[in-house]
Design a protein around this nucleic acid. Structure first.
Length: 904
DNA sequence: TTGCTGCATGGTT
DNA sequence: GAACCATGCAGCA
């Protein structure tokens, strides 16, 4: 034994020289490397402690017997709460372990706390790591809790824990993982039957590296409930989203903190999209470099995220081992026609042959189809450094049909050392997810079982309005979300910048920049995906659709948790995907929904508040027994059905279009959302006496719901007195006032313009050019004439573009509505101004009537027949009332902006 | 005029 | 502030 002080000068922890347990350090020569528990300094020789420092290691000692307890949950490593009973409780998963028998563990002679020597053999469980080498398989992994129920907590094999730790560390590095305590210095404890006689503290990665001396293909399963295989009892670990709620989940509340971890939506898992947790090798986990020369140097963004399944597909039946090296998200220039793929310097120098001349050398790389490509691997001198590129990649990129945003993965086949090139398509990731597609048959890395690619699809993820819909009307800070759902391989990267971009509508500057510049912004600097807007549209829609289909498990009521002052629903069980339906509203205001039988495909009418299961047939129609058989004819005539479906489809399109330009989070406060919803209402048609519209009504809005959405009466219901000062009335009045002011302003501007033109004409006339000038003055001078002329334009536009949501069936303008700006920007601005002028010239009462706001007019003045059709969703009603207060007066601004675009 | 090459520039980390 | 790297761009064929 020798005494030693931590090599880190700033640490200076004294490593005791003898059995004396001083801070737990003791040095043994000839052992494996380890880290200083205080500073993380790596020692060539094993420095370990017989004792377990519970707070640091995740193990807690039983108060009574000193036995070490651990729940086996990764996140619990730093989240174990010591119970008065002597047991521990995992703050993360809430699993607890009670008192242990004292017979099986000896206490450390030095410190008085227990050591692992003498751990009963029966306390061990086999590692069972299929991909680790034999030595690991021979290891016994201490499962220190033999209490009843402890079987639920099979500890991870070292290799898996290693990866889990690395991943979590990565998340920590990206500030996406916020355990209550520190994790980085944690160690696992395991005893073995090998020459390691006593329980040692060895960081698994080090252990693996030292034992194997070469890259190891590890099983990267992060499933912590490996013995369960029951998705209902999915891992309770910190890396697992414990309760989904509908959009967001949280850990069981700990004593101090609540954690939100990025995770694929449990709904996906619950919907059966997940493979068996116990057999998963499809989980996409970042694999940190396994080779020493680049270890700790490579940015996590380049860590290969390749699944075991993909590895298996590459290696096939051969005995070769595929070592994932690195990956890169293709930038615009990478995927461009130049044919130069910029390689991360660290990767190029670590994994590719060393080159001393800028010309480099040709490099053979085999793609996933087995085709060999020869690229020129070279570098450019750059600022006393080098910039490595692969030249001539265009044919390969095109062959794999890759584009910016897709990911290329580089691997190496050992022992041959052959370089392999795979890819992962960004654009189809969600499609795979949505459509339950299996992996690519050719073994390409394009399968995305249920994870979004980490760097890809940020836009798509952030566009997942449903995901954020829980915060409707609550101004949930994006920062709070992004902080918790950010990056990491557990699937839900968010960053504020991304969110901000997503919130941008099509009219935002970011979307109006030239294509070239946009691609640059999206594809490169910000590491954001170059995703075609239409792709994003589809992605978003699919998520929205998914969101609408989410149903809480039967009989499960959500509990409400508060995170940073925002209430979230939390479900004990994952929600399921319900069947999609079409909501309608009768003239009476009664809502109902239409659902298609999965068996006979007939449409049946159900009460609006019915939450449908994923599968629904006529036999399930307990609400109308007369229609509870597939043999019963359809309730709707073919024409009615066609109308129903057509309207549903069209409105879905509008919703989709509006959704792109509306902020997904601040839906309630976004003027675009107003427009969207109202547009829906304005396009309702009647089907057999029933007005039909799809709805964005969230399943959470059920009868009895008292949220701001649901408490609003449907249009036409409930009268507001003229003196009413509610949000609705005030908003309407304010808008009217704005209209009037703008009208006056425009009139004065127009008069000034006319005077100016007249003066100009007069001057030119004096110069004898009056004739030609007269031609130029074809623009109307008289305001009434102006209106008439534009009115005719309006008609033309209205005829040519039935998609315009500005114009309702009665030709009235919906002031709330914002048309699809990409298509209708110019047209709508014209339409808007004409109509605005017309509207502004009307008395307030008339305006209110024409806009279906008779509820705001006094009883005597209101016309009960002024509005028949009602939007099916209360959101729309609410929004169409203008109940959503702009946060900063943006409402008036937006209207003013519109006026500013008046071409006249 | 077009495409390629090599380097420079500047944004991001 | 340095390193990295995405991309711009001048020069050339």
């Amino acid at each position: 034994m020798e005494s030693k002080v931590c090599m880190n000068e700033q640490c200076g922890v004294s490593l005791p020289s003898s059995v004396e347990c001083k801070k737990g350090w003791r040095l043994r020569s000839g052992e494996l490397a380890s880290l200083c528990d205080s500073c993380g300094t790596v020692y060539e020789q094993l420095v370990f402690c017989d004792t377990f420092h519970s707070k640091d290691t995740g193990w807690r000692e039983c108060k009574s017997c000193g036995k070490l307890l651990h729940c086996g949950c990764i996140a619990s490593i730093s989240l174990l709460e010591l119970l008065d009973s002597g047991g521990v409780k995992c703050i993360s998963c809430s699993k607890s372990h009670g008192l242990c028998s004292t017979s099986s563990r000896e206490k450390c002679k030095d410190s008085g706390v227990s050591a692992a020597n003498g751990v009963d053999e029966k306390r061990f469980s086999n590692v069972g790591n299929q991909s680790s080498i034999s030595l690991i398989n021979k290891m016994k992994f201490a499962e220190c809790c033999d209490d009843a129920g402890s079987d639920d907590h099979t500890l991870l094999p070292p290799s898996q824990m290693d990866d889990a730790i690395e991943t979590i560390n990565q998340m920590k590095a990206e500030e996406t993982f916020h355990p209550a305590g520190e994790f980085g210095s944690s160690f696992l404890s395991f005893s073995g039957q090998s020459s390691i006689q006593s329980t040692q503290k060895v960081k698994p990665s080090q252990y693996m590296e030292n034992v194997h001396g070469s890259p190891v293909r590890t099983n990267l399963t992060i499933s912590l409930s490996a013995t369960s295989g029951n998705t209902d009892a999915l891992p309770t670990a910190g890396v697992e989203e414990r309760q989904l709620g509908r959009k967001i989940s949280s850990f069981q509340q700990g004593s101090k903190s609540r954690h939100l971890l990025p995770k694929p939506p449990k709904s996906i898992l619950a919907a059966g999209l997940e493979t068996n947790a116990s057999t998963t090798s499809q989980i996409r986990v970042a694999r940190p470099p396994v080779e020493g020369r680049i270890k700790n140097q490579l940015l996590p963004r380049y860590w290969p995220r390749i699944t075991d399944q993909e590895l298996q597909q590459i290696s096939g039946d051969s005995n070769s081992t595929v070592v994932p090296l690195f990956e890169k998200v293709l930038s615009a220039s990478d995927a461009g026609r130049i044919g130069r793929l910029v390689l991360p310097k660290a990767c190029a120098e670590a994994y590719f042959p060393p080159i001393s001349q800028p010309e480099g050398l040709p490099l053979r790389i085999q793609d996933v189809k087995g085709k060999e490509w020869v690229f020129q691997f070279r570098f450019w001198p750059n600022n006393n450094s080098r910039m490595y590129v692969l030249e001539g990649v265009t044919p390969c990129i095109q062959s794999m049909q890759l584009q910016a945003g897709d990911t290329v993965t580089f691997s190496r086949m050992d022992p041959e050392g052959k370089l392999l090139m795979g890819f992962r398509k960004a654009s189809n990731a969600l499609m795979v997810q949505d459509k339950h597609l299996p992996s690519m048959p050719n073994g390409a890395f394009s399968s995305e079982p249920f994870f979004l690619p980490v760097n890809e699809n940020l836009h798509a993820v952030n566009s997942h309005s449903g995901f954020l819909q829980s915060f409707k009307g609550r101004d949930f800070p994006l920062s709070a979300l992004s902080k918790h759902f950010n990056g990491g391989d557990f699937g839900w990267p968010l960053s504020e910048s991304n969110v901000g971009k997503t919130v941008d509508g099509p009219m935002s500057p970011s979307t109006l920049v030239p294509e070239r510049k946009r691609s640059r912004n999206i594809g490169s600097k910000n590491k954001r995906l170059l995703i075609d807007s239409q792709d994003a549209l589809e992605v978003k829609l699919s998520w929205e659709e998914l969101q609408d289909m989410l149903r809480p498990p039967s009989g499960i009521e959500p509990s409400t948790v508060t995170i940073e002052d925002f209430e979230l629903e939390e479900y004990e069980q994952a929600p399921v995907l319900g069947k999609k339906s079409i909501f309608t509203v009768l003239q009476s205001g009664e809502q109902e929904q239409w659902v298609q039988c999965d068996s006979c495909l007939k449409w049946r009418r159900l009460p609006a508040d019915v939450l449908l299961p994923p599968k629904w047939t006529c036999q399930d129609n307990t609400w109308n027994l007369n229609r509870a058989s597939c043999s019963v004819p359809d309730e709707l005539s073919p024409q009615e059905l066609e109308n129903l479906l057509q309207m549903s489809k069209e409105l879905e399109k509008k919703r989709l279009g509006a959704g792109l330009r509306s902020g997904n989070v601040h839906e309630s406060s976004n003027p675009d959302a107003l427009g969207n919803s109202t547009a829906i209402g304005g396009n309702i048609s009647e089907v057999g006496g029933t007005s039909v519209a799809t709805t964005t009504k969230h399943p959470r809005h059920r009868p009895g719901c008292s949220c701001i959405v649901c408490i609003q009466p449907p249009s036409g219901k409930g009268k507001h007195k003229p003196t009413c000062t509610c949000n609705v009335c005030m908003t309407v009045k304010r808008r009217f006032k704005t209209l009037m002011m703008r009208k006056k302003k425009r009139q004065s501007e127009r008069e000034a313009e006319i005077a100016q033109r007249n003066q100009f004409v007069w001057e030119r006339k004096e110069e004898g050019e009056a004739e030609s000038i007269g031609m130029q003055l074809a623009t109307p001078i008289d305001s009434l004439e102006d209106q008439r002329r534009l009115g005719s334009e309006l008609q033309i536009i209205s005829q040519n573009n039935t998609q315009s949501v500005e114009i309702g069936n009665n030709g009235k303008l919906d002031l709330n509505s914002h048309p699809d700006r990409e298509n209708l920007q110019m047209k709508s601005s014209r339409i808007s101004m004409v109509s605005l002028l017309q509207e502004a010239s009307l008395p307030l009462e008339t305006y209110l009537k024409q806009n279906g706001l008779t509820s705001l007019v006094s009883d005597q003045q209101a016309s009960s027949g002024s509005h028949v059709l009602q939007p099916a969703n209360r959101d729309s009603e609410n929004l169409s009332h203008g109940v959503q207060e702009p946060e900063d007066g943006s409402e008036e601004l937006s209207e003013t902006d519109q006026s500013g675009k008046d071409p006249s």
